[in-house]
Every structure is written in structure tokens, then in C-alpha cells.
Amino acid sequence: MKRPVQPKFFNYMSTILETVDLKMTYRVGKVDVHALRGVTLNVARGEYIAIMGPSGCGKSTLLHIAGGMLTPTSGRLIIDGEDVTAMSDAQRTELRRRKIGFVFQRFNLFPTLSAEGNLKLAERIYARAKNGGNPEGRRRILKLLKLEDKLHHKPLELSGGEQQRVAIARAVVNRPALVLADEPTGNLDSENSKVVLDMLRGLNNEFGQTIVMITHNPEAAARADRVVEMRDGLILSAGVPHTDS
């Protein structure tokens, strides 16, 4: 049964992610591949957007640049008021540590660590200290993601959906300004996909977590506040904020 539609408003004066005419060209052999041809996009704080488009349209490149893992050929990238394009590699790493959480299609958990170990590792990297992290915050997130009883399980002992929930927990455990999710349901069946999408939605609703999600799945995209469509390295439509689903 569909929940009643609630209007949701964003303060576009408080932009968390801003790209200005981003271009990215790869050299593959002797051929230049233009992955991004001038992408301009704004994401407001607390917004949940989905980026859709066919394979090779530049979605992942945009996500990697937004996460500070790739340097654009030209253009500007501003995250939470900081100009990332002017940063050194070490500064971008620092920004990623402080402000960004990643969720990957293939979960990318450390197979040798338990679910809790994966979360603690993220906390330790964030805090750069040998303290116990934030047990209370960790508990809240684990509860929200229904992972309390899976703490001591290693990734291979968990289902795909559970692994992705652990990966989401790891991405948000340090309360980053921005979560970048690359096809988070791409490796999941429809049931687990729904659970994961519910979790992302819950995080956005409950914690006001800003989420930028790449997806091929229109149903997944429909759960976002706004859908951005890309093709051939360009944004076709930046979408219009719609109602909560």
C-alpha cells in the first residue's frame, strides 16, 4: 500500500555538491574518450538524487570525480563549499575521509573482517585514533539497517542484501556530508533491492543524509527526490524535485 505523498523542500542555498562545466577526457591508446563533456549539477544538502543513463554515459566517472577519486580534465567541483578541483591528492583524500561515504555495487567489504570490524575500520580511518569510535552512533545505524544480530558475521556469511546493508552502514557511520552510491542494487535480487532502497530512503529521511545514487533501475530511481538523466557525457535532464515516495 502506498504511503501518503508528503511534499519535501530543499534549501538550494545550501548546496552540498556543485559541478560547473565538468569535463573528463581519457586517453585510451591513441584515442581520446570524452567521458564528461561539460556537466553542471547542483545537489542540495539533504537531497536524495538518482543519476540514470545508459552504460558509458559518464555516470560512474561523475561519481568518481565527485568522490575525489578522479581529477577532471577541466571544470570545477565544489563539495560543501570546498573547491575540490584546486586540491592536491592528499587534500582530496582528506576531504573524502571527512565528508564522503561510498556504497558500491559489489559491496567492497573487507572479507577478513566482521561486519562490526568493517564499521570500526571506517571509524578508525575517520578518527585517526585508536579509540572505540562512536558506539552509540554505530548502534543507531545498525538498528536502522537491521544489522544488530549480524555484527560478528564476516561478509561471506551474509546474504548479498545484508552485505550491502553493512556497506551502507560503513558509508554513513561517520555521518558524511555526502553518500555516493554506485549501483547499490545492481547485484541484488528484487527483494533485497527493495530492502536496500528502503534503507537509503530511511537514512535520508531520518538523518537528512544527502545521497547521490547511480542506477539503471527506474524503480530505484523513482525512490529518489530527483532523477538526473545523462547521455554521452552530458546531463539531459537535471530533473525536478518531486515528492517523497
Partner: peptide
């Protein structure tokens, strides 16, 4: 790949 994950989590070169 695990080193890539560490980097995505913001682990510095030194770390």
C-alpha cells in the same frame, strides 16, 4: 581491490 576500498574510505598514503 582492498587497497582501493581503503582509499575510498579516505585512508591516506601514510596510513
Amino acid at each position: 581491490r582492498e587497497i582501493g576500498i581503503l582509499k575510498s574510505l579516505g585512508a591516506s598514503k601514510r596510513l
